[in-house]
Design a binder for these strands. Structure first.
Lengths: 174, 174
DNA sequence: GTTGGACATGTCAATAGTGGAAGGTAAGAT
DNA sequence: ATCTTACCTTCCACTATTGACATGTCCAAC
């Protein structure tokens, strides 16, 4: 149930409408969590019913600006400190690698090579975000930077791994 | 729809019953994909109906040993070579980090520190698997080793990141 | 003045995934 | 003999996620 907490977290930062939050899911949050519009509006409804958020202001075009309530903030804090079990990893990419024996060594190598390229692209993308953002000394900036750095390290790791893996396949299968 | 391909991949390697596959999801595959029993038996039914697998042998205790069919193998190959879009990342852990401004700096640091420990544990776990497994020169061994190495690099990356992040929080918030 | 694009919410059907209950068989150990 | 443990499948209720469709409003440019 993390969508719930993603929404609470964003509203704890600043009030906003479903539409506002959707934009954030598409940009700043995209590296961390994603949600579609249908999911989001559904969750906003549930959160309001549960008293964790409330409509703070109604704007034009039916806009409803939600704000977090004390109950919501309490729930968010509790979740933040709750020691979560290591999440199950589910990687379609790795799943493919695991079964690459089904195709030819050349195709396998090509697949891994493309993974490396994709990681490189991700790295560039994250670096450009880093440059664009004006990192002030707010909490949002501090922790946003930590998350971005995680992404950069992740992408770099995948790139290195792909280079290494291509070599391993070549060494083992010519 | 990757569960489908995980099942096909395992059956391409060797025939097996739902129960057999379940064991593999809990062990060798656990770092790559997971599935529960209800999902698995449901998927086996669908795959059989679709003609991608068939019951090769019935054993004691209602055991049904499934084998992949030519259609199934074709589907698996097609999927392996299909260039997948970079999957959306969804990390509950990073989501928490992103909102750590909601709790005290000490609590935030503690949370990140625990992440690092958890990564260390994962690393040890993967290293022990590496030692236990007898890596022959089969395809399964080659690609299994690549996947395991990915996991080790991932865990090492998380550990390093956590150490660095603890320092950053301390530097910014005392 | 109308048109196109950004803003804004809502609902639906379908698929995917979780967790647990229920029901049963075979084999080996004592 | 019986008992325990491992083996094996099926079903159900619930939540999460996707993608598409429907419906409308405000604003700026032309």
């Amino acid at each position: 149930m993390s969508l719930r907490h993603a929404v609470l977290g964003m509203l704890a930062d600043a009030p906003g409408s479903g539409y506002d939050l959707l934009k954030r899911f598409e940009t700043a949050m995209a590296n961390v969590w994603s949600a579609t519009q249908s999911q989001l509006y559904g969750e906003l409804g549930k959160l309001e019913k549960a008293g964790m958020i409330k409509v703070a202001e109604e704007g034009p075009r039916g806009r409803k600006e939600y704000a977090i309530t004390d109950e919501g903030r309490a729930e968010l804090r509790a979740w933040l400190l709750d020691p979560a079990p290591r999440p199950v990893r589910r990687s379609e990419t790795l799943l493919r690698v695991y079964f690459l024996g089904e195709v030819s060594p050349v195709q396998a190598r090509e697949y891994v090579r493309r993974q490396g390229e994709s990681a490189e692209e991700l790295n560039r993308h994250l670096a450009s975000i880093d440059e664009e953002v004006d990192w002030d000394d707010s909490d949002a900036a501090l922790f946003g930077r930590l998350v971005l750095e995680w992404g950069k390290r992740y992408a770099a790791m995948e790139q290195d791994w792909a280079d290494w893996a291509v070599g391993e396949i070549r060494a083992a299968r010519g």
